[in-house]
């Protein structure tokens, strides 16, 4: 018994083992969690559900609506977003032209302004994106600091 405790304390006292210990704890939590409550049921009443219209040229990102008009978007708090749905329906002139002439707009719509993803990223959950860019900003500042310091020597 004391041997086991001694072994455990020897592992824990070296901070280089902490990552391994952490990974082990996560594995244990997943196994125990699955045993306690399984299966986990999927809630049918999701926000921003995905609907696919195979006949649309904007497939799979067509959520209906015409540019500069409102669309039905299932968001968490519609009362905080009076202009909800306008970004979803918006298409730039270029993307409008592509969608009218070809059937491949769905493959590139994510890179054009407008659409459901932009609605979520810029409007309804805009703060998440601000924090995400801030994280990138901080990480790049750190990498550049280390890089320039190394180079100046």
């Amino acid at each position: 018994m004391t041997g086991i405790i001694r072994r455990i304390s020897r592992i824990l006292q070296n901070h280089n083992n902490l990552v391994g210990v952490y990974a082990f704890v996560v594995i244990a939590i997943i196994i125990v969690g699955l045993l306690l409550q399984s299966p986990l049921t999927y809630d049918q009443d999701q926000l921003y559900p995905k609907s696919i219209d195979k006949n649309s040229s904007l497939d799979p990102y067509d959520r209906g609506g015409v540019p500069f008009g409102q669309t039905n978007v299932v968001s968490q708090y519609p009362e905080n977003e009076p202009y909800l749905g306008y970004v979803t329906a918006y298409l730039t002139p270029v993307s409008l032209w592509i969608s009218e002439t070809t059937r491949f707009m769905g493959t590139t719509i994510v890179s054009h302004p407008g659409g459901i993803i932009d609605e979520i990223l810029y409007n309804t959950r805009g703060l998440d994106t601000i924090i995400e860019t801030a994280i990138l900003f901080v990480a790049f500042t750190m990498a550049m600091f280390l890089f320039t310091r190394r180079r100046e020597e």
Binding site: V26, I29, I30, V32, G33, L34, L36, Q37, L40, T41, Y42, D43, Q44, D45, Q46, L47, Q76, Y77
Partner: peptide
């Protein structure tokens, strides 16, 4: 939490009607 409760807002998750699985809390 999003998959099993259908929401991310703490206001909804805190209500008694919404139950969060143990594994999500522990993780």
């Amino acid at each position: 939490i999003l998959a099993t409760t259908g929401t991310l807002s703490l206001w909804e998750i805190f209500t008694p009607a919404v139950s969060v699985p143990v594994i999500a809390k522990a993780l």
